[in-house]
């Protein structure tokens, strides 16, 4: 390899080193620096004893879990429906993909309109007779978690659908023909062919979406105010409201560790080549 084969990489590498690697390293350093100098774990101890931090960790995991379940369920349903080449497939695909490009803050605004106490979801449910009195959708922690996860799922289900659709298209049709010849039921075909061969696409959707959900920020902030702290908003409030960069850095490091753990287990599960195809 000659140096000129690599020279084009230099600006990008320098930029990412300076504006990404260095900042993350200095966050790491900040999280263990004593204000007077020296190394300390006090900031981690401090947030560990902070009631809101524990809540933020649990909320982050819960929003991720509920959101992923919804997205995979809806995304898989949509992908399976579209792959069967139904009538109006193109139109449906365009409509289903619409939320993909919608800005996250707009998704929050839209969902706040839908989920308000005098919002449209309550009106629809009242008309259908599913509820008798309007529900305050961010009134309790459980409902707020659900609402934030639904808002997240609304925006990103199209992405999961696209990933799964690409996965489904890669499954050779002959497999199904052979299965039908052998008299396998539709359900059996799904369980024995579709699901196992869709596994790479499913794990990819899971990790990409999981890591994004760990970092969720705008939706909980805009939908619940301070009502539902997650790790990103916790770090934000610690820094910008309480002016404490140390605890903000420490909570960012916890988030970083969670993400690295998820990515590492994914790489172990899938193998790096699969990630990069």
């Amino acid at each position: 390899m000659r140096p000129r084969d690599l020279v084009g990489l230099l600006p990008l590498a320098l930029y990412l080193a300076g504006f990404t690697v260095v900042p993350v390293a200095s966050t790491l350093a900040l999280s263990v620096s004593a204000p007077g100098g020296g190394i300390t774990l006090d900031h981690f101890r401090r947030i560990a004893g902070h009631y809101q931090f524990g809540e933020a960790v649990v909320n982050t995991l819960a929003v991720t879990g509920i959101g992923l379940a919804l997205e995979l369920l809806l995304g898989l349903a949509a992908a399976l429906a579209l792959i069967g080449r139904p009538a109006g497939r193109q139109v449906f695909q365009v409509l289903l993909l619409v939320p993909l490009g919608v800005p996250t803050i707009v998704a929050a605004a839209v969902m706040r309109t839908a989920f308000g106490t005098v919002g449209y979801l309550n009106e629809i449910l009242l008309r259908l007779g599913a509820i008798r009195t309007p529900v305050d959708w961010v009134g309790t922690r459980g409902l707020a978690l659900f609402t934030v996860a639904v808002a997240d799922a609304w925006k990103v289900t199209p992405l999961v659908m696209l990933i799964l659709l690409a996965g489904l298209q890669a499954i050779p049709g002959e497999l199904y023909e052979a299965a039908r010849t052998d008299g396998a039921s539709r359900w059996r075909q799904f369980a024995a062919i579709t699901l196992p061969l869709l596994k790479p696409a499913l794990t990819m959707a899971l990790i990409v979406r999981g890591v994004d959900a760990f970092r969720i920020f705008a939706l909980p902030l805009a939908l619940t105010g301070r009502g539902l702290p997650v790790l990103s908003t916790y770090a934000y409030v610690e820094y910008l409201e309480y002016g404490n960069p140390y605890t903000a850095a420490a909570s960012s490091v916890i988030l970083l560790a969670m993400i690295l753990l998820a990515v590492a287990s994914y790489l172990k599960l899938a193998g790096p080549e699969e990630v990069l195809r």
Partner: peptide, 9 residues
């Protein structure tokens, strides 16, 4: 990488 860990520094 989490944006909060980039944004702060």
């Amino acid at each position: 990488l989490p944006e909060v860990s980039i944004a702060l520094p």
